[in-house]
C-alpha cells in the first residue's frame, strides 16, 4: 500500500452506517458515566463531614446570581400567558377563571420546566466550563494529589447547591409570574390584588404546586450532575472546555424534558383528576 493510500485511509470519515452506531455507543457511555457519577454522589452523601462553606459559595454562584434572570422570565411568563389566553377565555365567558388558569399552568408546568431549561443553559454550561478549565489547568489533578477529594469538594457541593437553588428559584418565579399576570389583569380588567389572590387561592390545590416544586429538586440534580460530569471528564484543553460547556447545556436540557414526561405521569397517578 502506498503512503498516499495510507493517508487517505486515515482521513476517510466513518461510513454512514457506522455513524448512528457510534452515536448510540456515545449515548450509552454517557448514561453509564452519569449512573456511576450518581452512585458516587450518594456514597459521598453518606460520608460526612461536608464542605458547607463551598456549598454556600456555590449557592451564591448558582442561585443568587441567577435571580435577576429568573425574575424577568417569571414576570414575562405570567404576563404573556395572561395576554395570550384572555381573548379565548373571554370568548368562552370564562374571564373570571384567568388567574386560576394562569396559576395552575405556571405552577404545574411552565415555571418548573422553563426555569430549569434556562438554568441548564446558564448554570449547567457554567459548571461544565469551570470544571473543564480546572481539568485543563491540572487543578483537579492538584486536588487529587493533595488528597483533597475533588469529587467531594467540586462535584458534590455543586450538585447539592443546584438541588437547593432550583426549587427556591422556581418558587420565586411562580410568585413573580402571578405578579405579572395580575398587572395585565389590572390593566385590562381593573382587577384588584385581593380579588386576584382570592381567585388563585380558591382555585389552586396542593397537588398543583407541590409536584411542580418537588420535580425541580430532580431537575437541579440533573443540571449539577451533567454539568459536573462533562467538566470533570473534559479532554482536549481549551477546545474541550467549550465542548464540555455545550454538552452540559444540551444534555441536561434534553434530560429535563424527558424526565418531565415521567414526572407528569407519576403526578397524575398520585393525584388523579
Amino acid at each position: 500500500m502506498s503512503s498516499d493510500n495510507k493517508n487517505s485511509e486515515v482521513l476517510t470519515p466513518l461510513p454512514d452506517e457506522a455513524a448512528p452506531v457510534a452515536r448510540w455507543e456515545g449515548g450509552l457511555a454517557l448514561l453509564g458515566g452519569l449512573w456511576v457519577f450518581s452512585v458516587r454522589f450518594f456514597k459521598t452523601l453518606a460520608r460526612p463531614p461536608y464542605e458547607f462553606k463551598e456549598i454556600i459559595r456555590q449557592l451564591n454562584m448558582i442561585g443568587y446570581r441567577s435571580l435577576s434572570l429568573v425574575s424577568v422570565v417569571g414576570i414575562v411568563i405570567g404576563a404573556v400567558l395572561t395576554m395570550q389566553s384572555r381573548p379565548t377565555m373571554i370568548k368562552f365567558g370564562a374571564e373570571a377563571f384567568i388567574p386560576e388558569m394562569v396559576a395552575i399552568s405556571v405552577m404545574r408546568e411552565l415555571s418548573p420546566v422553563l426555569i430549569s431549561v434556562i438554568l441548564a443553559g446558564r448554570v449547567g454550561a457554567g459548571i461544565g466550563a469551570e470544571l473543564g478549565s480546572m481539568r485543563a489547568s491540572e487543578q483537579i489533578d492538584a486536588m487529587d494529589v493533595a488528597a483533597l477529594d475533588p469529587f467531594k469538594y467540586l462535584v458534590f457541593t455543586r450538585i447539592v447547591a443546584c438541588m437547593i437553588a432550583l426549587p427556591l428559584l422556581t418558587i420565586i418565579a411562580d410568585l413573580l409570574a402571578l405578579g405579572g399576570s395580575w398587572v395585565v389583569e389590572k390593566i385590562e380588567a381593573g382587577m384588584t390584588v385581593s380579588l386576584f389572590i382570592q381567585t388563585v387561592v380558591n382555585g389552586v390545590e396542593f397537588s398543583d404546586y407541590l409536584p411542580g416544586i418537588a420535580k425541580t429538586i430532580f431537575f437541579g440534580f440533573t443540571i449539577g450532575l451533567v454539568g459536573c460530569y462533562e467538566g470533570y471528564h473534559s479532554k482536549g484543553g481549551t477546545e474541550g472546555v467549550g465542548r464540555s460547556a455545550t454538552d452540559a447545556a444540551v444534555t441536561s436540557s434534553l434530560l429535563i424534558i424527558l424526565l418531565d414526561v415521567l414526572f407528569v405521569k407519576v403526578t397524575l397517578m398520585l393525584w388523579p383528576y
Partner: peptide, 21 residues
Amino acid sequence: GLMDIRSDIGFLFQGAALFDS
C-alpha cells in the same frame, strides 16, 4: 491508601495549578 501517602508528597505542576477561585 493513596490519600494517605499523598499527604507526604508535594507536587509542583507545570502551570502551578493554583485554585483560581
